[in-house]
Design a protein around this nucleic acid. Structure first.
Lengths: 346, 346
DNA sequence: GTGAAAGCGCTAACAT
DNA sequence: ATGTTAGCGCTTTCAC
């Protein structure tokens, strides 16, 4: 097809023999246009294949109806599931998304990204990068110079910062309490990397659940992995050395739990009788592990949806009240899925 | 922080005692500005925390440096890995991404999405939705009325349409030929849903590889799954009924292959000796299945990168040559990863 | 109900 | 080396 310059509101007006404002009224569904005029203009619009320029409109209205989204680790299923929720809710609420991915979790070169979004006049920002190491430290110095609302996902609570996270602590407690409830007492833990906030939360949940049951946890009951199946194998081997009497283990994600099941099988350790196992995430395959894995499900689509809802709420609120910076904080509750990898102690 | 109106080029100019044009020259790094003037303006820019409006610039330059990206099925690891490649390359090439997700594979309500992107003056579109059923049929009627370059991912070849896909056919042949090369002759196939183009390509690759080895394939040697582990279990059960002499199976993805390994184990079928298994995708867990899974790796990050490269090439070419619609077609070659689930026939 | 004028923040083209 | 003018495509305000 030929690509002559796309028609503007002016072409439509000329063709219809009216002024541009009249066309503007039609495309904005304003009431004060004569029915026949509107009719005619609409016909011409479709004939000309005219599409109002969102850019010109943004400039003129000083409103972009876009927000910026920064993710990281899209190769993992968690971030992308979250993304799916974000996309869905943004669509519903009529916002567009400028999308960027951080090449590494731990990037401290934040300013260019912020500037990029802000130059494009986004009305808010979703920072969907999990807190790892000190990768959120820039917040302290920069946060309140950002002229639009910003919401962080999967981040430790901070004053005056809007955050949405899954309640990892509660999830870990549920997992551990379930193990306790089936009579297990020697409960080990394979954690994620300890520079991850989520890992620390999960370990704390495990530890507190034990303590409330009158069991003191101890470093030799924990081994650290890095989320990968490979690291899970290593961590489990270590745990069998340092904590041989273990009769259950709470593993911080399903991929590492898979290795535990695998290794247990190879070592003739019976799961769930000799060793009960709980994972975290509920990846689709976990139902087909052998045995099917008891695990903690985190609704990441909901996490994404909530993030957008709250961001949009902040945007609207700020627009309405003028100057105020509104803040939101919420947690998504996870859910325990009981399958065959846990059983009562006999 | 107070959110007074963000400064414009005009404020900077006034503050610096120059015209807006001079400021414009500075922010665009034009040479013809006196060093001290530039110096002063830069200082004021940073003092005022001034950020040029990309919207105003787009309007004025008639260039947005953005493209539209439509995905589907982000909950699966494939699409999101592709996305990661797209984000990376777009960043490199200086383009922004407007992001949308289709709620279902099979959506025929395409026009609003196209319109949405085009209204925002995107300079190109990436249609990263796999071809399922007739969900690409709209192409025939609409394609050449789209005023910007558009590239399709994972789509059957069509005249005059730009496409990037993984070579599923070649991948399936590699898998099957590997099975043949280790002496297997009774090679079954668990396919994906047959309304998926990728499924058909993979089945065809299997079939042709067999035929070239002098083996005629037959419907009772195939069972259809829907990519999920659950469906894989069902399909495998069916295959054991209809094709009991089977000594190998090529499974169209790893998740279904997991079920095959699982079921084989429960049924005391030895993998790889009695039954060799090849999957497709190389999901991270596949290395930890029992036994570790031989599979076909598709480099989806590369798929995404290539898509962006070619789109940008089309954009630049069209801009340069004026009217012409340039077209690109390419395939990403997959790679066979040999692990323990396949072995020579004894 | 419709139109004229001004302006959103920036750049291109032409002065000086 | 710097300024002036006009214009990108639309909306807002105020007339008529």
């Amino acid at each position: 097809m030929g690509k002559m310059a796309r028609p503007t509101i002016y072409e439509v007006a000329r063709e219809a023999g009216v002024s541009r404002q009249t066309v503007s009224r039609v495309i904005n569904n304003r009431p004060d246009v004569a029915p026949e005029t509107r009719e005619r203009i609409l016909r011409i619009i479709s004939e000309l294949d005219y599409r109002p320029s969102a850019i010109a409109r943004s400039l003129s209205k000083q409103r972009s109806y876009n927000f910026g989204l920064l993710t990281a680790g899209l190769k993992y299923i968690g971030p992308s599931t979250t993304l799916s929720g974000i996309a869905k809710k943004a669509e519903e609420l009529g916002y567009g998304i400028y999308f960027k991915e951080l090449p590494t979790w731990n990037s401290n070169n934040i300013q260019p990204i912020l500037d990029w979004f802000l130059a494009r006049q986004v009305e808010g920002i979703i920072w969907a990068v999990p807190e790892v190491g000190d990768n959120h430290d820039w917040l302290r110095s920069v946060a309140d110079s950002i002229p639009v609302p910003i919401i962080f996902l999967t981040t430790a609570k901070r004053a005056n910062i809007s955050i949405v996270s899954v309640d990892n602590y509660a999830g870990a407690r549920m997992a551990t309490e379930h193990l306790l409830s089936v009579g297990r007492r020697k409960i080990g833990h394979i954690s994620g990397p300890m520079d991850w906030w989520e890992s620390r939360e999960r370990r704390q949940g495990w530890q507190d659940a034990l303590r409330e049951a009158g069991i003191e946890s101890d470093p030799h009951m924990v081994a650290e992995g890095n989320w990968s199946s490979k690291s899970g194998k290593r961590a489990f081997a270590q745990l069998m050395e340092t904590f041989p009497e273990m009769d259950a283990v709470f593993v911080a994600n399903d991929q590492m739990a898979l290795s535990v099941l695998q290794t247990a099988f190879e070592s003739n350790i019976d799961v769930p009788d000799q060793l009960s196992v709980v994972g975290f995430d509920n990846i689709p395959e976990s139902e087909f592990f052998s045995p099917p894995l008891t695990t903690v499900y985190q609704n990441l689509v909901e996490l994404g949806c909530t993030a957008v809802e709250e961001l949009v709420w902040m945007i609207e609120t700020d627009k309405a009240k003028g100057d105020r910076q509104s803040v939101k904080y919420s947690k998504i509750q996870p859910e325990l899925i009981i399958r065959k990898s846990t059983s009562p102690k006999t």
